[in-house]
Amino acid sequence: MTPLNQVEGRAIPLGLKNVDTDVIIPAHWLKTTTREGMGRGAFESIRKDPDNLFDRAEFKGAPILIAGDNFGCGSSREHAAWALGDLGIRVVIAPSYSDIFSGNAVKNGILPVVLPQAAIDRLMEVAATDPVHVDLEHQTVTTQFQDRFTFEIDPFRKMCLIEGLDEISLTEKSDAAIGDYEKQLDAERPWMRPAA
């Protein structure tokens, strides 16, 4: 996973609420056995409009996306995070996310920043013409117009993003504890193993 700390660049002012994962990546793009190339199908229904935000010259390769409430709701498909990553997006800024999406995002080196709607409204204004700066270490989003918004993030997620950590390697350090749990489970609730 590519570590993430400072991200500066144009931010796509999408702004919509309830952007579901079927909108981010429709199901027919899920018929693949690899993680690559999802960007081609990203936001397909929106990009049918030739004047869509994503394909405007100024937003090509923009590293930040600004959206409304409940971003990434719906399906658990991690393809949504892969599609955003493939578009070059490293940060999403929204008032709220679906739980599954925000987890998937972090596991793919994408930072889901939570800011109140008033901050989103202001950033949407700036993003139309100017870049936005995201600083994960100091948990701030700033603009060249003296805007400064701070955000909260779970410290574990923050560490994973900054260090680009692979969660499985981390969990493997708990191998003995998992083994102990399994022994205890077999002793206390032996019927938990599938019967057949």
Binding site: R35, S75, S76, R77, E78, H79, A81, I100, G103, N104, K107, N108, F156, E167, I168, L170, T171, E172, S174, D175, I178, E182
Partner: peptide, 19 residues
């Protein structure tokens, strides 16, 4: 019971746990 992404599928396959 809850849905997980593919990285978590891999995590569960490898460790039978989730963080």
């Amino acid at each position: 019971a809850f849905g997980i992404g593919t990285s978590e599928v891999e995590h569960v396959l490898a460790t039978q746990t989730l963080l």
